[in-house]
Design a protein around this nucleic acid. Sequence first.
RNA 1: GGCCGAGUGGCGGAAUUGGCAGACGCUCUGGACUUAAAAUCCAGUGGGGGGCAACCCCCGUGCGGGUUCGAGUCCCGCCUCGGCUACCA
Length: 887
Amino acid sequence: MPRYNPATIEPKWQAFWEEHGTFAVPRLPDGDKLYVLDMFPYPSGDGLHVGHPEGYTATDIVCRAARMQGKSVVHPMGFDAFGLPAEEHAIKTGEHPRIQTEKNIATFRRQLKSLGFSYDWQREIATTDVEYFRWTQWIFLQIYDTWFDAETQRGRPISELPIPAEVKAQGLDAVRAYQDERRLAFQSHAPVNWCPALGTVLANEEVIDGKSERGGHPVERRPLRQWMLRITAYADRLEKDLDDLDWHEGIKALQRNWIGRSTGAEVDFYIGNTHLAPGDSPGAKWGEARAKCGLPEKPGDDVLRIYTTRPDTLFGATYMVIAPEHRLVERLTTADNKAAVKKYCDTAAAKSDLDRTELAKEKTGVFTGSYAINPVNGEAIPIWIADYVLISYGTGAIMAVPAHDERDFEFAQQFGIEIKPVVQPGDHVPRDEAAQILAGAQVYTEPGVAVNSGDFDGLATAEFKQKITAWLADRGLGRQAVNYKLRDWLFSRQRFWGEPFPILHELNSDNQPTGRIRTVPADQLPVDLPHLEDYKPHGRPEPPLDKAPDEWLYPVIDGVRYKRETNTMPQWAGSCWYYLRFLDPRNETAAIDPEIEKAWMPIDLYVGGAEHAVLHLLYARFWHKVLFDRGVVSTPEPFQKLVNQGMILGENNEKMSKSRGNVINPDEVVKEYGADALRLYEMFMGPLEATKPWSMEGVNGVYNFLGRVWRLIVDDKADALALHGSVTNAEPGEDDLRATHRCIKAVTEDLASLSFNTAIARMMELTNHFTKAEVRPKSCLESLVLLLSPFAPHLAEELWSILGHVDSLAYEPWPLYDEALLVEAMKEYPVQINGKVRSKIQVAADADQAAVLAAAKADPRIAELIEGKRLVKEIVVPGRLVNLVAK
RNA sequence: GGCCGAGUGGCGGAAUUGGCAGACGCUCUGGACUUAAAAUCCAGUGGGGGGCAACCCCCGUGCGGGUUCGAGUCCCGCCUCGGCUACCA
């Protein structure tokens, strides 16, 4: 009884492919290349999730079909293997994180192989491989060695950075400092979540409500020396280059939003050298001086520089706000406000970003006691401190215009500050509402026409913005400015299990850092992680590598003692360039051979979850652009086409999670139904990009389909493996050919648009067609098997061999369809009267419109229905339908 | 609050982009085969109504309007659900 038995045929073909190196890819493409990439997984201890095979099957289908269509396809897989869980396991057990990581990778590899994906496993890499992160470190050195030339909008070697004469005159250290300030990788102090009870620094996700996720211990924010990458320098290019990418508009919008470019003006408000009081003015001298020398590059201590996107509302500014971390806080606070201000700033410092934004519904703030002079009207307005202004955006200070900004409005209402409307709403605003706005009782943030704005009254918002910006620039009081929501990338972590930085800090004779740093030369990479006795926290905020043995931690070069950088890189680092290494995974002299890079890049199709739509894709694009500027890669963008697979929900339509108990294990599905059924089901569920619920009955459904295909070709009632009796070498009939060629056309087209679900439906139709047929022409069955092979490769290979072929079908030419065979002699037209189908007629396929119309009117039922009525309109849509409008 | 996406039978989903709504599959029902069951094969399966019958009629794509000979598809106004994001001045 040769039944369809995936449990025997699947391992058999997997072994065959492996033995024969069926999917091994040559160094360079042979003919048209296709680079299809999956987002490589993080090998968690839980093993593969059913979400993984969704995208992986989609790309596998594309690759298998492309090979049959003669393309040279590279389709690699690897592992994003650094990460917290392995380190936590190490802390508990004392076992090196690498051991756990490798176990997990082994599980993932086994699971992936059991699904029959056509990866070139020779190219497998893990970000944790020393030979891989050697080149991650090398790329860091490239970034470190680069400064961004704003003029040409390009990253250039630091050696090409022009050094101003006055800097040069101050000596070598000054030059170094000047360069270091401009490198794309630089050091800075940034707060971390320090948990004294756990003796370790926590990631943001590990902090909930200001307490540690584990144990609920208090967490404080502490500034620590960190590495930053200057991604903001590339913000404009990262935004602009999205235009030419073949990505879903929604994802592009997400990235644009994240970059968050805004244009406005920076404006200086005079604050004097002491504390200004109401009624004070800067005096004519200051204004004259400014008009002469223009706006200084950096604001001095006598002004408060703010950023606004609405310079047209300057006349409506009734107070100022600076962030609690602003450098002028102390300077601006008058004696009698000191205590309150200190208390407020201390509280703000303890709050996490989350507390300051999401959870804080009510606005808070404190008055400094001093005033600033509005440059447009000379009015002195109070300066407040409030944490709704972020130090990390713009200048960390704003002018508040409560009449035309919701946040300022809320704040002003709360603290009883004047609300002064300066924008007359547009005509779309109802009259009573406009009156409310002009009375300062309601906020209005849209454009309109200026009022209460001196000589500028009557200007439309857009025009006013331009005029006032020019006015300010003329007087040295302000300038046009651009800002981004995007922040520089905090690139260091206080963790063990990550890539070490190839950086050394010089020490003086007292073992204190001198501030000078040097890099580990490229030819001395990799910097491997040291051996540790155990992985337990050492109880200081410094990274765990601080407890590395001295031989590792303190190298001596040319008689100078250094301390290694002990921060490690974040998990994002490894995934920023893995797609390059896949092309040349064993290269020992370069990250990638330029010849190989030119031949295969860019990636033609990149498939992965939407959860990486912002960070991973932005970071990788940023690295790629730096590498492009430095001549390492030849394309400005890595991922030409991107598709985000949808989420798979549990059977109950909820997210899959252990706690809900609705997690589906792919191993179980493979065991019960086979890999082909799992693959086919995941593709049949619905569109790749849609969120859709799992259904075991659905899996059973496609499993039945595969069984039907099997029985179409194999006689499952025979004692031994034999072709079904109705399989024949005879020439196929017209109906068979039409059905087959329609299927070829549909599947080919659906594949091109990644519409796998409908492609499968078409193959089901063809299977139904031949199941009913008493004679099944072999040539048609072969076409079906080839069409099915990218989806259910094991079954297809088995049937292909049963049909008498010796070789794998992996490189068999893709079936072609003949347009001439698709058309029928007769065509059925529905005939509508007043838009409702009343009859159907058979007409010769090549009949002209008049003939179709005549046939429609001649139809007995139609004739009866239009009898005695007047035909107002007669519509014939060629190839579609007839509609008669009768009265 | 903002951005994006989606609402079609009992369920997952189709619909050449303005042209027969419900392809394909699941579920369910009936039949064939069988001593019986499973498996398999065949047929039916949006709702309501009429007819002995082949058939016929009405309603129907979240809701309300509109454009059109014709709307799931386009326009206007809502409702619901999901994802991402969140004081970015």
